[in-house]
Design a protein around this nucleic acid. Sequence first.
DNA 1: GTCTATATGTTGATAGAC
DNA 2: GTCTATCAACATATAGAC
Lengths: 212, 212
Amino acid sequence: MAYGRRVSESGVREAGARRGRGRPARYSLDELLAVVVAEFNARGYDATSMEDVARATGLTKSSVYHHVSGKEELLHRAVSRALDALHAVLDEPTSTSGPAVDRLEHVVRRSVEVLAAELPYVTLLLRVRGNTPTELAALDRRREFDRRLAALVQDAIDAGEVRRDLDPRLVTRLLFGAVNSVAEWYRPDGAHGVPEVADTLVALTFGGLRRA
Amino acid sequence: MAYGRRVSESGVREAGARRGRGRPARYSLDELLAVVVAEFNARGYDATSMEDVARATGLTKSSVYHHVSGKEELLHRAVSRALDALHAVLDEPTSTSGPAVDRLEHVVRRSVEVLAAELPYVTLLLRVRGNTPTELAALDRRREFDRRLAALVQDAIDAGEVRRDLDPRLVTRLLFGAVNSVAEWYRPDGAHGVPEVADTLVALTFGGLRRA
DNA sequence: GTCTATATGTTGATAGAC
DNA sequence: GTCTATCAACATATAGAC
């Protein structure tokens, strides 16, 4: 923490205060990315100009271009981070051994945890539309992730551990639709902690809402 | 259907074929909106320029400005249509009388149906970020809708018809997170029809996935 | 109700001094 | 590694002819 950098509680450096004055900011790429991704999520990637990025970081546009080749590299680094974290969940030991329904439940829980831990990056990923090569590549990796999820649901059905009367691809989409929706409202300092969110999600989708 | 207008199966006039040539298009506002909203959803609202809008409609920018005051009016008309349709669900008789859990289930089913029927408009609504006055007003109406949903869940808990061990606001968010996620993949000509989607969603969230 | 032409601001990105 | 100054392209929107 040299230079007494002004960094907010969330670990995101505070915005725009020192442009052109005082000591140079000396951003690391990760620090810069955290600020920029927060801005992308607040205004939308397309609606955020490089001038907005510069203002948020407290640098000039030129200085931002010293760190990255352009706006798209910022997006690429952000969504790659999210995709790496999500794919890693599927490679965990508990995701690959044991009863299929337990593996599925584990992946649901861990997905919520990763979503919370990497919230800004996952949020940005979930909003990617496919306008650029970077975005298309991200959508491809997302689809690969979804295929691996669907295989997990299929395993649980084949093992007779979940009800067989539902289409597995449809169940996968709805189940992880609920998981992903957490990104729309979850806040680290909000009313609900990660364990409660994960427990409620599992209770809702594995146990069901209706009273016995 | 005068003038033998070229309109696709989805009711959306086909794009860009006649700019500057042949008979004037004579768009109604609703027809124009359908084309434009499809474009907004394909590229993202912010990433869609008025030039893109003009190309998609087969008009010039100037002609588009004859129909609407600007880009934001197009957004306003689209999200208002979605919000009107969603709020109407809560005012249906079956949403306001009978056992609370049945009212809740009815609203879930009808929300899926409205989402499918008004897919492009709801899709656009769900992506609104809050950058402009129009978007902020839309977010306000969405929040009001969510409040009414949460009250429905609370009613079902108070009536003892659903399990009491879950936080009602959290359940509301996850339940309708799953509902809204349908907009991300549902297609009218896709593998799953609306009744199957609604049945599966209700089975998943009210009955639960795990085998008894 | 459509067009061509244009006004005026903003965009992503670069040149080059310090 | 930051800055000032600038560019060409593209943005939203308008004027006015037909």
